[in-house]
């Protein structure tokens, strides 16, 4: 048990410190790197409580894909400058109260959920129909996800699809004057289409465009 608590406290201290550093560090790229460290230590914590599937998915989805896109955006746009402007200039400081209200809301919600879970367990309808001890994490997740919660699962998939289509529609623009490669056109091109032999009168030249 000693080793367990040593690892638990190491990971949770890293998680909390890096979460603080996300907001505290001046360089925006550094904050994204701290966010990644935070994700990694949280997935370690997930693995420690026996939710190894969740931990691995956290690594694959958040660290492997989402945080890379974060890094992209932060590196390409000059977010660091904008962030400094927000905090230093007078005009834009109205963002801070909004952020404070949202974070207070999240904090209150967390207190309600965690406190309720601790002191009023009968409020929560936990489905114990599966004997979780016997099957592995992945199996039990799959059994619940694709039977009891299939509609929620499908709806969340549809929402993601709509978001994807929306992003494509917003960024799609038809550019004119761009030569795109078409494999079918290239392969189906014959010699007779491309080359023609003309009789050219001397000192006249040839117009190709007719």
């Amino acid at each position: 048990m000693i080793a367990h608590s040593i690892f638990f406290y190491t990971f949770s201290i890293i998680a909390i410190v890096s979460a603080i550093m996300v907001t505290a560090s001046k360089n925006t790229v550094h904050s994204v790197f701290f966010l990644i460290l935070d994700f990694i230590s949280i997935s370690c914590l997930f693995i420690m409580i026996g939710a190894e599937f969740l931990g691995m998915i956290m690594l694959i989805v958040y660290v492997g894909a989402v945080a890379v896109l974060f890094l992209f955006v932060v590196m390409m746009l000059n977010v660091a400058q904008q962030k400094n402007q927000w905090f230093s200039s007078e005009a834009s400081s109205k963002h801070i109260p909004v952020g404070l209200i949202i974070s207070t809301l999240i904090f209150v919600e967390l207190i309600i959920v965690v406190g309720g879970w601790k002191y009023k367990p009968d409020l929560f309808d936990i489905n114990n129909s599966l004997e979780l001890a016997k099957v592995s994490n992945t199996h039990s997740l799959g059994q619940v996800l694709y039977t009891d919660y299939i509609h929620v699962f499908q709806i969340s998939g549809m929402i993601l699809l709509v978001a994807m289509i929306g992003a494509i529609v917003l960024t799609f623009r038809k550019r004119v004057g761009v030569k795109t490669q078409s494999y079918i056109k290239q392969i189906s091109r014959e010699r007779s289409d491309g080359v023609s032999v003309l009789n050219v009168e001397s000192n006249k030249g040839v117009k190709i465009d007719d």
Binding site: M56, V63, T138
Partner: peptide
């Protein structure tokens, strides 16, 4: 028991 996920991650 999540070996392949670990490799992928």
């Amino acid at each position: 028991n999540v070996g392949i996920l670990y490799l992928f991650a």
